[in-house]
Design a protein around this nucleic acid. Structure first.
Lengths: 206, 206
DNA sequence: GTCTATAAAGTGATAGAC
DNA sequence: GTCTATCACTTTATAGAC
């Protein structure tokens, strides 16, 4: 029996790798940097993982699942739909301001996967997860506010993710908080305007 | 006297580096790959540039200037504003479909600059250039269509760039042409709806 | 100016002692 | 299982012949 299970050692290495990536970027996450961060020897890495690529694969799966978990916790059940969308985007933006390197790392992981043979399919799953999360948030937000969407929710989810991604990379580049806030307000107004009250879509009963 | 000037050798190396980055990504643009692509020896690289970082600096400056030049050529002078915005975005999307690796490379260069000491300010300039280009396109489009904008044009430019960036990364991940087209139509409708006819904003003279 | 050869440092992965 | 030591390779950069 080992002092720590194989799964625990793997998880510890993934967490260490994430700290390195968060701090210095994907290119800095060498096996030596990762084991130094985890307080292990280099050989332990290859005892837990067959290769660095195998670890990166597990890391990306973990990150995608974690993003989904965090996003779904940020829903305000008592708000009109425009406020709910704005609050959700502002919550994300505060996360971005608090951990810019973390969000940048997620974008780097997409680029890395797209360029790495055998990992090209991961960004598709990552964005499918993003769209799913946005869709759930929009559905619950509309339910809480007593409205329904005037556009297919898949389209709305893609719009929301596109604006959020665009907001992120522009802010990472110029750190303009005011412009980001204005963009969020615009997005919330625009998306909020696409909601129809439930009564207005059943005029025969009024 | 040299057979080719120092500036020409530097430009040739930058173009070779761009071909490598376009094909295999920023991480693959090693000095050896670049000189092989340019048909030079390794020593020639360090004769033209003090270091790889110096070359990357010149490369990014070149790319930013080139993007600005290309974008400003894609303007249709005879269109209503909604069609003009949609046509501009569709033209960009066709460019993306034709050269996905090139657009991915631009995003990689942003991430690379943000992580490289001494290059952190370049993404700011790059996005300032993007915003300036979007602003010029929106101004000329409105002028051609005989309308004016109901929102500050800086805000509109940032919205346009954010949606374009978000569209790009999502499409690179899942290659969903139909979803991208729908997103473009939505963006064109939304931004087009923010244009006011010139007559409607000068009611006193009517 | 342009080459070959090589230095100096970093990389992923493994062998073998304990 | 966990270490040290090391292999085989790649990287940027430079020295020195021509």
């Amino acid at each position: 029996m080992s002092r720590v299970s194989s799964a625990e050692r793997r998880a510890a290495l993934v967490r260490a790798a994430l700290r390195v990536i968060d701090r210095d970027g994907v290119h800095a996450a060498t096996t030596r940097m990762i084991v130094a961060e985890a307080g292990m020897s280099l050989a332990s890495f290859h005892y837990a993982f067959r290769s660095r690529d195998e670890m990166m694969r597990e890391l990306i799966a973990f990150v995608v699942a974690d993003e989904q978990r965090v996003s779904l916790e940020a829903l305000d059940p008592d708000a009109d739909i425009r406020s709910a969308v704005r609050a959700g985007m502002r919550a994300y933006f505060e996360l971005l301001r608090a951990h810019p390197s973390r969000e940048q790392a997620l974008q780097e992981l997409v680029q890395y996967s797209l360029r790495t043979p055998g990992l090209e399919h991961l960004p598709r799953a990552q964005y499918a997860s993003y769209f799913h999360t946005a869709r759930v948030l929009l559905e619950r937000g509309a339910e809480n506010a007593g409205v329904q969407w005037g556009l297919p929710i898949e389209q709305l989810a893609r719009i929301l993710i596109a604006i959020t991604d665009g907001l992120t990379v522009a802010w990472l580049a110029d750190r303009d908080d005011e412009a980001a806030g204005t963009l969020i307000d615009f997005a919330a107004d625009t998306i909020g305007a696409l909601a129809l009250s439930r009564r207005s879509v059943t005029p025969k009963s009024s």
